[in-house]
Write a protein that binds this DNA or RNA. Structure first.
Length: 592
RNA sequence: GGGGUGUUAGCUCAGUUGGUUAGAGCGCCGGCCUGUCACGUCGGAGGUCGUGGGUUCAAGUCCCAUACAUCCCGCCA
């Protein structure tokens, strides 16, 4: 099965493939010394490669004195080649925890291909070494089986997606890395142009505009495993460069893109042994916000948000009633199982609420022995309290956490608390849950600038029935948009695009651009739309996040071969580094 | 830009109220060992306590600043 791995190289078997049926065979293996157990008169060496490991035995009766002496001085991570005979282990010597544990290699000759200094950390799974240390010596970190498995999984995912897209007539097309800065969106990585002093390329935040141009160019179905760059602060699920599976189709509406994506996802998940039912649930954005407080809900557990605004509108607790009467919302979650938490533990949750914009956090605890604890119960009438308990489905052992604020802030607060409580209460979240969140609002109001901005991006198609609201009631405009949500992460997002110049101009104007700015920054797009752009739309999947979730990792750094630290640095190569004065001069730059 | 946590041996960590020579496990080096597979066993080496100031008779420990890492908020159309 792995025969091809033994072509073109200096071994005829990998370290993971030999079984009892090979007993008696003369074999050659090559790999890294993993463990070396020297018993004086007998030496066991576990030889490891990416496929597994095999025990090699050095018996002084079977190897030359020189080779035995060599084996005595082997150390971890030395690179060796051994020749020997496959031998069945005695019954008591069989290692059931080892794939190759029924056999061993009785070595007849050894060649040291390279030595190694002592590695800075152990080459094995489950280490807790600091990530910076692992990144500095990433090449040995990658020797660890779990790292290899992550890269293998990533490879399988991209391979399955390529195959599925190819079967459906998609062309893989490369788009430029040296592109133009886009006026909106994330901060760009910029690259000076030597022949054009004072001018800069920007690395693409996504191939968005190029893929739309490909549709205008008649490619009809495009995809690309595309590297994207954003110069923003990092997170566990954010890197300065990351990979999108970027897809675009012509002559489609939103349902068709989602159907296509589900088919591609279905074969991708199948290829990596994950079962999930299709078709996927399609949840309206508003419903996601109402029920989960966020547009990428983890639907593997409940603890949904409950709107209590009407119940508390006239209650004696001024914080609630004034918010309710002032146009805000009062919502709560029921953290079942936290009812016996101490007051101190509960009050600490207010820090999480505050971090998400809340001014405070009310709570009511229902202890398992039937008592009620809370600083706010006294403000409610019996009827109000009964209605509240009914709405929250209260039982002994429950802890209610409240947010009274604007819809946006209350949602953010409770969404954060919901995830925190799920973690704290160890609520099971096994397997994977995919769904679509659809129909995002087209615009949102930027409170700082007072301007409207596109929620997804300004190329998103608006349902025709909402076109007249672009100028009059932008916040009520819907959009043909769809996010693929997986386990509480945005695994992908897409839209149907605007394909007529007039509508595109109206949307860009609504985002605060003048006609002149539109011509300068988006002239190429407008021209393209004027030259017979077909209806089109697409989606981009966050490959790193998808693989992270499938691999069960907490960080996309674990599924990227050479990731960067939170300051966007690479401890291995030292990037970003300084450049010489001559290099700066060549691109007409001077440092401040 | 803001907040939390952390930085002590190659790795992972402990280090009490500020008080003798800063410890442990793993790893490493040397000896012994023919059935181990986290081999065992005996011995040994290894430290600018992130960096810079300060308080003090005395600082790993207290204070200030700073760097780096990591998580979160902002940000990420």
């Amino acid at each position: 099965m792995t025969d091809y791995l033994n072509e073109y190289c200096m071994h005829d078997h990998t370290c993971g493939e030999l079984r009892s049926d090979a007993v008696g065979d003369e074999v050659t293996l090559a790999g890294w010394v993993w463990h070396n157990r020297d018993h004086g008169g007998l030496i066991f060496v576990d030889l490891r490669d990416r496929e597994g490991y095999t025990q090699c035995v050095f018996d002084p009766d079977c190897v030359s004195e020189a080779d035995f002496h060599t084996a005595e001085h082997l150390a971890r991570e030395w690179v060796i080649q051994v020749r020997g005979t496959v031998r069945a282990r005695d019954d008591e010597a069989v290692n059931p925890n080892m794939a190759t544990g029924q056999i061993e290699i009785l070595v007849s000759a050894i060649t040291v291909l390279n030595t190694s200094v002592t590695p800075p950390f152990a080459i094995e799974d489950g280490i807790e070494t600091d990530e910076t240390t692992r990144m500095k010596w990433r090449y040995i970190d990658l020797r660890r089986p779990e790292m290899y498995d992550a890269l293998l999984l990533r490879h399988k995912v991209t391979r399955a997606m390529r195959a599925a897209l190819d079967e459906r007539g998609f062309l893989e097309v490369e788009t430029p890395i040296l592109a133009n800065s886009t006026p909106e969106g994330a901060r760009d990585y910029i690259v000076p142009s030597r022949p054009n002093p004072g001018r800069f390329y920007a690395l693409p935040q996504s191939p968005q505009q190029f893929k739309q141009m490909l549709m205008v160019g008649g490619i009809e179905r495009y995809y690309q495993i595309a590297r994207c760059f954003r110069d923003e602060d990092l997170r566990a699920d954010r890197q300065p460069e990351f990979t999108q599976v970027d897809i675009e189709m012509s002559f489609v509406e939103n349902e068709e893109v989602m159907d296509m994506m589900e088919d591609v996802m279905a074969s991708t998940l199948e290829a990596v042994g994950v079962t999930h039912s299709f078709p996927l649930q399609r949840m309206q954005w508003k419903e996601a916000m109402d029920r989960f407080g966020c547009d990428r809900p983890d639907v593997r557990f409940g603890m949904e948000l409950v709107d209590l605004t009407d119940i508390v509108r006239d209650c004696g607790f001024k914080v609630f009633s004034s918010v309710a009467q002032g146009g805000g919302v009062v919502k709560a979650i029921n953290a079942k199982g936290a009812g016996d938490w101490s007051r101190g533990e509960v009050e600490k949750l207010a820090d999480i609420a505050a971090a998400n914009g809340a001014k405070g956090m009310a709570w009511i605890a229902f202890t398992t022995d039937g008592k009620e604890k809370s600083p706010i119960i006294k403000f409610f009438s019996d009827e109000e309290f009964a209605a509240l308990k009914k709405a929250m489905d209260v039982e002994p052992g429950d802890l209610l956490l409240f947010a009274a604020d604007t819809f946006d802030t209350a949602s953010a607060v409770l969404a954060a608390l919901r995830l925190h409580m799920a973690e704290a209460l160890d609520i099971p979240r096994e397997g994977h849950a995919l769904l679509w969140v659809v129909n995002f609002p087209m615009f949102r109001l930027d409170e700082e600038t007072g301007k409207y901005a596109a929620e997804h991006h300004p190329f998103t198609m608006i349902p025709e029935s909402d076109w007249d609201k672009i100028e009059t009631a932008p916040l009520e405009c819907g959009s043909y948009s769809y996010d693929l949500v997986m386990d509480g992460f945005e695994a992908g997002g897409g839209t149907i695009r605007i394909h007529t110049a007039d509508l595109q101009r109206r949307v860009l104007r609504r985002c605060g651009l003048t006609d002149e700015e539109i011509d300068v920054k988006f002239g190429h797009l407008i021209h393209a739309l004027e030259l017979g752009a077909p209806p089109h739309g697409g989606i981009a999947l966050g490959l790193d996040r998808l693989v992270m979730l499938l691999a069960g990792k907490d960080s996309i750094r674990d599924v990227i071969a050479f990731p960067k630290t939170s300051s966007a640095a690479d401890p291995m190569t030292g990037a970003p580094g300084e450049v010489s004065g001559r290099q700066l001069k060549e691109v007409s730059l001077r440092l401040l």
